[in-house]
Every structure is written in C-alpha cells, then in structure tokens.
C-alpha cells in the first residue's frame, strides 16, 4: 500500500541510513556552537547593513540542534541522496542557517560576511541554485511547509528512510497556504515530516497576538491531526529529544512548537519587536559580541 508507514519503519531497521556527519550529544559543546553561530550572525548582519536580527539570533539553538545533533547530512556531499531534507520556510532568517551551515563545514566561514552583497552565494533570502545544501528557495512566507510535505510524500511513497525537517515561523501561520499544507500532511499521514515552529511571538508589525491572534496553536495542530510537542526553543537537548520522539510517531506528522525569545542572549534585542527586521550598527555589534563572549566563559573546557 502506498501509505503504509509501518513498512518504512521496518526498512529503517533493516537498512539504517548512512551516518553522514557525526552527531554531537554533549550539551555544553552544543551550547558553545550555538554561541559561535550567534556571533557569526551578528557579524554577518552588521556587515550586510540590513537583514533580520531577532529571529535569526533566536533560532541559533534550534539550528544547532538540527545541524549538529539531529540531521543525517554530509556537508562535504550536500547532494547525498540519503540525506535528511532541511526546508526553511521563513527564508528571512537565513543568516542563522548560513551560519550553521558554515559552522558544519558546507563552506568557509569567511564567506559569511558576503551575505546580501553583489555576487554572493548567500542571497538575502535563500536561493536553491546559488548555494549547495539549500533545499528550497524561499522568501514569500507560507511556502516551505508545502515543499517539505511534498518531499515527505515522495519519501513515504518511494519507501525512503530519510526524514524531512521544516523550520517555520509563527507569523507565517497568518498565511492560508500553511493550513492547506497542515491538512494535506495529516491526510497523507506524513510521519516522516517534523516541523519546528519558531514561536517567538513577534512579526513585523508587532506581537503576533495583536497583529492576528494564532492561539491556541497546539490545539489547532492537534485538531488537524498532528502530533504536537512543545519545547523550550533554547534548550538544545530538549529540541533533539523532541525530534527523536517524533520519529516514533509513524502515522502523523509532528509539529514541535519551540518557544523562543527573539534576539535571545543579546540583552538589547530580547523581546524587542523593532529588531525583527533590523541589523546591528557598530556599537550594537560590539556590545552583542561582548555579551556573547561573556557567555563563552561558561563553556570552558567544552
């Protein structure tokens, strides 16, 4: 049968996917990587003089969890057919994805400072054709979950053991297309699809619940037939644990609602909506980097 997910699980047991990049489990090491990624993002956005700071910084822990603790992938062979697919739906937070990719070894970290500049592979919103390892071009909100669901349907029908991860935002749940994809993923019983929502409560014009109320999000997803897990989006071990739990739910897609603080770990950015679409100036960059350096002291020896 085309939609028999249990066969896929069996296949995974018989032929586990090739390991790709080794995964890190030490939580201190992971925290340190997340801090490095935050530093990169601050430097990138400062150099670019435009871009989206708060969301990118707030997602550093989730991207660390994915690229270093969760995804089966191989930065030296981005087209590896057995890789897990990582779809970014809210493309404007791509600085954090680029930083995580460079940290994982997809391309040299020096290239990060070319973000948004003429001739750069690091386009202002991700472009699939420009940079190996980018699974989908994105920018207009609400399109990524559909693409991820398409990949997951392909994998399910063709008995592939790889999984699909989709990072999306809370604000883009204003878009109707998201809910079309939510319905379809449940219809096709896409247990191989894990979405992670950056629930940071802000969007361009203010707080999500003022602009267009989204709650109760967990109940909405459950009503649509999804498995829902809520996590602290800055606790990397929790995020990895939730992704692993999702693997065992075969008949339903999983939505991990990751509660995050926009601009997390940079005092003047946290919770401030104006940092959604702004980049740090010289002084702000220096202060942010100094604060992140202080954090690093806690990871000595990791």
């Amino acid at each position: 049968m085309a939609d028999d997910g249990s066969k896929q699980a069996l296949l995974e047991k018989v032929a586990p996917p090739a390991p790709g990049m080794p995964k890190i489990t030490d939580s201190k090491k992971l925290d340190r990587i997340a801090t490095d990624i935050r530093k990169s993002v601050v430097q990138m956005l400062h150099a670019a003089k435009s871009g989206h700071s708060a969301g990118s910084i707030g997602l550093a822990d989730i991207f660390t969890a994915l690229y270093f603790g969760m995804l089966n992938h191989d930065p030296k062979n981005p087209e590896w057919p057995g890789r897990d697919r990582m779809v970014l739906s809210n493309g404007h937070v791509c600085p954090v994805m680029y930083a995580a990719m460079a940290e994982a070894g997809y391309f040299p970290k020096e290239e990060l400072l070319t973000l948004r500049k003429l001739g750069s592979r690091l386009q202002g919103h991700p472009h699939k054709g420009s940079l190996p390892g980018i699974e989908n071009s994105s920018g207009p909100l609400g399109q990524g979950l559909s693409i991820a669901a398409g990949m997951a349907l392909f994998a399910k029908r063709k008995r592939k053991s790889w999984r699909v991860y989709c990072v999306c935002s809370d604000g883009e749940h204003n878009e109707g297309q998201i809910w079309e994809a939510v319905m379809a993923a449940a219809k096709f019983k896409l247990g191989n699809l894990t979405a992670i929502m950056d629930r940071n409560n802000i969007q361009i014009d203010g707080y999500t619940e003022d602009v267009m109320p989204l709650e109760p999000l967990a109940e909405k997803y459950r009503a649509f037939g999804w498995n829902v897990i809520e996590v602290d989006g800055h606790n990397i071990s929790q995020i990895i644990k939730a992704c692993n739990e999702a693997k065992h739910v075969i008949e339903r897609p999983t939505m991990i609602i990751a509660h995050t603080v926009p601009g997390k770990a940079i005092s003047f950015m946290e919770f401030i909506t104006e940092w959604h679409g702004k980049s740090p100036g010289d002084k702000e960059k220096d202060q942010a980097l100094a604060e992140l350096k202080e954090l690093e002291a806690g990871y000595e020896g990791a």
Partner: peptide, 27 residues
Amino acid sequence: PERFVQMGVAEQNLAGMAAGIASCEDS
C-alpha cells in the same frame, strides 16, 4: 494511484507540494 496525488481545492499547496516532490531524484 501510487503516483497520483489528490490535493483538494488548494492550488497553492498543489504547487508547493509538487515542488517538493520534483526536488526528489528525477521526478
């Protein structure tokens, strides 16, 4: 039937999921 997908009245998701399937192998 294993290569046919009924999307319901949802043309935006129709295009999006098609992009996802088309990105896999030589679909």
